[in-house]
């Protein structure tokens, strides 16, 4: 018997993510001021707050619609690089889900896989460049196994950015000086997958 998830599950996830991003905004900004320009926390906070508001006001009917609506909202409110990148992640994942009413975890994993590919295409980055992809790629992969595995893989991927030298985005200007710092984008990606695992745990399914 396989658990399936509807629009309200994904809306609950993104609302929880908004709360987590709000709580962790200062930490994200601190990470970003070490190797970027100190705006990652404030930008994501503004974007996810707008997502939560939009989803509450006009709840979309399908999982796919929740993700595409959230993605569009992020593109319209965040700015910087993270707006188009996170927006593309959710929009592409949403499009991959089509208009299915309920989807299983493996279907979600597939959709996130498509979203992650779209992010890689847009940003021209790959795993090891010290970007959000270092958390997103292993997380989408591990989601085939379980929500908890995805959370762990994202966190592990974010942690693994510490010794890396940045090759994309603003941290790349630092060259060797980017080594020894945790990537803020990979950290916020890990937050999203942690919120997803929490939401699934509340739903009562697996771990």
């Amino acid at each position: 018997m396989t658990e399936t998830y509807g629009a309200e599950f994904l809306a609950r996830w993104l609302t929880a993510a908004a709360e987590d991003v709000d709580r962790e905004a200062d930490r994200l900004t601190d990470l970003d001021s070490a190797i970027g320009d100190a705006d990652h926390g404030a930008n994501l906070k503004r974007g996810f707050a707008a997502v939560a508001e939009t989803l509450a006001k006009e709840p979309p009917g399908t999982p796919g619609a929740v993700l595409t609506t959230a993605g569009r909202q992020l593109i319209s409110t965040v700015g910087g690089a993270s707006g188009p990148l996170y927006g593309t992640l959710l929009r592409s994942a949403g499009k991959a889900l089509g208009d299915e009413e309920r989807v299983g975890r493996e279907r979600l994993a597939e959709a996130f896989g498509a979203g992650v590919e779209a992010v890689a295409r847009l940003g021209g980055a790959q795993v090891g460049d010290k970007t959000m992809l270092d958390a997103l790629v292993p997380a989408a992969e591990a989601l085939r196994e379980s929500f908890a595995a995805a959370r762990a893989a994202a966190e592990e991927g974010a942690l693994a950015t510490v010794p890396l030298r940045a090759r994309k985005g603003r941290a790349s200007y630092l060259g060797e000086r980017s080594v020894g710092h945790r990537d803020p984008g990979a950290t916020s990606s890990a937050l999203l997958f942690a919120a997803l695992a929490d939401t699934a745990a509340e739903e009562g399914e697996e771990g």
Partner: peptide
């Protein structure tokens, strides 16, 4: 104009 040091949005 975007936010401080943040690119504006496509809209």
């Amino acid at each position: 104009p975007g936010e401080i040091f943040t690119s504006p949005v496509p809209d």
